[in-house]
Design a protein around this nucleic acid. Structure first.
Lengths: 139, 139
DNA sequence: GTGTTATCGGGAATCGTTCCCATTATGCCA
DNA sequence: TGGCATAATGGGAACGATTCCCGATAACAC
């Protein structure tokens, strides 16, 4: 994103399901799919529907509480990332286990904006994700 | 990609359909979805099935003739990019019309590899796509 | 030509995600 | 504290992109 970084939170109701989803995400520092989170919650005996999981994940993203990564296979994965005030950053993600490390690359940001401007592009944003095998999974 | 840059082409049969798909892609310098290409071909009276379009697009990717971009909405889009020997590059893509400009950022490549190495990640690759509105679409 | 076999294509199947809507539960106010 | 307005829920249907299956078709070699 580049414009509208407001992230204005709308009033929302506190529900068990919402808390459960957040908790599930908070439990791991990996990017997890909606289906995955749903399965985990159900396995824990949580009473929640798939729609609700999707709903909350999207809300977290809208509120700037979570980041999304679209895996090459098309699946969307989510991960809580600090709070809404955290600066823009990217991720180094393990292809195998999903574990992610937040990284920053100021140079990339400016480079992206410059290149876009040179080509007459406006309203620019970019995606930069680095995939690899973490030390643990390499074994 | 970082390893396996071999791009070994298997012997393939020359078919009208394969040629048609390549032609359709070659006609525009924009990233286009399989559905889009299929619709265009059918509109042109081409006799081809959707499966075949997907098949050839995937073949182009495997042979290193085309690049893929997974749009945020999950749709995959394809574009012919020089030939297999072309160097690794990224794209500046118009969110609206799909028009793409090939860009290079040597600094980004080295930065990505360095960051990954520092965190113990191996077998690294990365995706860098810049989205924006091209001058034409901004109007 | 003829035969072998890669390729085609249409429809069924899959998969992630969104939509719909009657039911439930939260938060506010009296 | 009780009751109400309405946000949130969830299960199943709907959807769109992609893949799979497999009998029919067409390339290429001899």
């Amino acid at each position: 994103m580049s414009l509208m970084a407001t992230t204005q939170q709308v009033k929302r109701r506190a529900t068990n399901q919402g808390a459960a989803v957040k908790e599930a995400l908070a439990a791991e520092d990996t990017f997890r799919s909606a289906q995955d989170v749903y399965a985990t919650l159900r396995a824990n005996g949580e009473k929640i529907g798939l729609s609700t999981v999707y709903r909350h994940l999207q809300i977290f993203v809208d509120d700037g509480l979570a980041d999304v990564i679209h895996k090459p296979d098309g699946e969307s994965t989510y991960r809580l990332c600090g709070d809404a005030s955290t600066t823009h950053h990217h991720h180094l993600v393990c292809r195998s286990c999903g574990k992610a490390v937040e990284i920053e690359g100021p140079a990339v940001e400016t480079w992206a904006d410059k290149v876009a401007a040179q080509n007459g592009f406006t309203d620019v944003n970019h995606t930069v994700e680095i995939f690899g095998l973490c030390a643990a999974c390499a074994a």
